Simulated assay, not measured.
Amino acid sequence: MGKLGKHIFMQKYSNINTVLPDTEAATKSNIFNMISKYDSLYLKPDEGTGGRGIYKITKTENGFVLRGGTTSRNYKTFDALYSSLHKFLYKNKYVVQQGIDLLKHDGRSFDIRVMVQKNRNGQLQTTGIIGRLAKPSKIVTNFHSGGTPLKIDTLLKSHLRGADRTNFIKKIKALGREASIVLGESYRRKKAFGVDIAIDSNMKPWILEINTGPDMSIFNSLKDKTMYRKILRYSRF
């Protein structure tokens, strides 16, 4: 399944459907209806990885702004915007997703990757959690697109204190595991899941997507290798 297939599958589960952003096939009518409801949208390749090919649409007083990579273009009407989008939507299968007002650190957006792996008994456990801080000029946080990996504790320090921060991190870890258990119902042979979680400005977590072939190398970028060693150990089960 691509992003849309996974979203539709997970929507059936009441324990996580309230933290799934609105996601649809990127048709003209779906994009129009969603930009009428939300301040911003993301266009993502249905089967893309690494943050490649992602665009952001933002509503403004004068029309719309389309950002991709480090470039942006302004459009006065939706038809003018869609005319530009159609060039790549025609060639590739895309999804359109509700934009989340991401929490920021030093003025830069970040999201969270939670690694969930099966233990020697085949049970899913959270084995790693890391933050990904976007470059100032970029709309994506992905490690391979220039995002900076940081300890989640560092990223949350200016938003939560002491026990509140500790408990919030536990909550995010548990959500990553719960979402992996749900998707694992369809991917029974998979031994690892990489759950991408956004936190909005109201501190609500959102499951952006789940990678069924997660890259472990991002965890090796941290100075403390404890988490990375644990992930490597679990990858052998």
Rank of each mutant, 00 (worst) to 15 (best):
H159T: 03
N167E: 14
T166P: 00
T23V: 00
R52I: 12
K12T: 08
F237W: 14
S137F: 06
S14V: 03
K28N: 09
V116K: 06
L41V: 02
G213C: 09
V195H: 08
G131F: 02
D101M: 05
K225M: 03
T226V: 05
L133V: 07
N30H: 11
R233T: 14
K93G: 02
K223A: 15
I231S: 03
S84I: 01
A134D: 00
G53L: 11
D22T: 07
Q97F: 04
R188A: 12
N119A: 12
K170S: 12
N33K: 10
L150N: 05
Y234N: 03
K76R: 13
G99H: 02
R132D: 04
L43Y: 13
Q123Y: 11
G122L: 06
D200Y: 07
N92W: 04
K44Y: 12
N92Q: 14
S145Y: 11
N119H: 09
P149L: 05
Y13V: 01
R229Q: 14
K28R: 15
T58P: 01
S217E: 15
Y228P: 11
L156D: 07
G2P: 01
Q11K: 08
Y55W: 09
L43R: 03
G128V: 10
K191M: 10
V19S: 10
N92D: 14
R165S: 13
D111I: 05
